[in-house]
């Protein structure tokens, strides 16, 4: 600290604490709601402290889902989300690192053309090509499959760029030394490039897992069967338009379950999360 200004520092602390409270408040209220009976939600004053129905509510949604809502058990939907998030994260990392390796370490005809094709995907988020992409997936018979949920989201220019940037920082001499040592391109990739990319892969994994888990529009389009819903879209189906009979306690329990895995990933892998976030967007 440059000078001593206790008043200003106190103000900063107060501001930060206040904002943290504001941000945490909905989470807390959701948690409180998830520990009461459905009826308690409609009694005043509204509950501000946890009730005793926590285990019952969570067990109910995990095993049976929400009565009246057309969804699968939340356990099943969490599993779908997990499969989708993992497939997207791992798949994206795998295909991006391979194509980045080809682009950086080989000079081959059509390379620039390929590079631009990959680059263009930056400009085509799923929101702008909803119908035709849906049609492609439908024609391929991939509706209501894990492949349909994840494969179309696997191509990404950002991950390819990240790896490309990273590869360019690896000294040229490392590849030359490996060639003199007799390593083929694949051997060099496997023995040298992959181990050196570990932290980048971890950072990317955190970001992509969150990205995959939190997908909304795409699963909404490609899933029609309840047992293929992901938890993020499932929760919305639990709130029908006329909110007459919403079991808010169960909906909030589902919300807590839906946000816990990515939140845990951020908290437990914060270092990689920050790295991944700052670097993928550069």
């Amino acid at each position: 600290m440059i000078e001593h200004r206790p008043g200003f520092t106190f103000f900063c602390h107060a501001l930060l604490i206040a904002s943290i409270v504001v941000v945490a408040f909905p989470l807390y209220i959701a948690f409180v709601a998830s520990t009461h009976t459905a009826g308690r939600m409609f009694e005043f004053p509204l509950p501000l402290l946890p009730g005793g129905e926590m285990l019952h509510n969570y067990a109910t949604v995990l095993q049976h889902g929400v009565a009246g809502a057309s969804t699968a058990p939340v356990g099943r939907m969490m599993f779908n989300s997990l499969v989708m998030a993992l497939t997207i994260a791992i798949g994206k990392i795998a295909i991006s690192i391979l194509s980045a390796f080809a682009i950086v370490y080989f000079r081959f005809p059509l390379k620039n053309f390929f590079f631009w094709m990959i680059f263009i995907t930056l400009m085509l988020p799923v929101e702008v090509r909803i119908l035709p992409t849906y049609k492609v997936v439908a024609d391929l018979g991939l509706l209501d499959t894990y492949a349909g949920l994840s494969v179309p989201l696997i191509a990404s220019a950002t991950a390819t760029f990240l790896f490309r940037q990273f590869f360019l920082t690896i000294p040229d001499e490392l590849m030359e030394a490996a060639r003199i040592d007799g390593a083929s391109a694949l051997r060099f990739f496997w023995d040298i490039v992959l181990p050196l990319s570990k932290t980048n892969m971890a950072a990317l994994f955190v970001i992509l897992f969150i990205y995959g888990w939190n997908q909304y529009l795409w699963p909404l389009l490609v899933t029609t069967q309840e047992d293929m819903y992901t938890v993020v879209i499932g929760i919305k189906r639990m709130i029908p338009g006329g909110e007459s009979s919403v079991d808010w306690n169960l909906v909030m329990a589902t919300a807590m379950l839906a946000l816990t895995p990515p939140a845990l990933v951020v908290l437990l892998m914060q270092r990689w999360f920050v790295k991944g976030l700052v670097e993928t967007e550069k």
């Binding site: 795998a94 295909i95 080809a102 094709m117 263009i120 085509l124 035709p132 492609v136 494969v151 390819t160």
Partner: peptide
């Protein structure tokens, strides 16, 4: 080899990005 390495990404890009955008 380099073609094989970029193939997966290109295939997905063409099928799910460029073709639908063209459509």
């Amino acid at each position: 080899l380099p073609y094989a390495l970029v193939a997966p990404q290109l295939a997905i890009t063409i099928v799910f990005f460029i073709w639908p955008a063209g459509q």
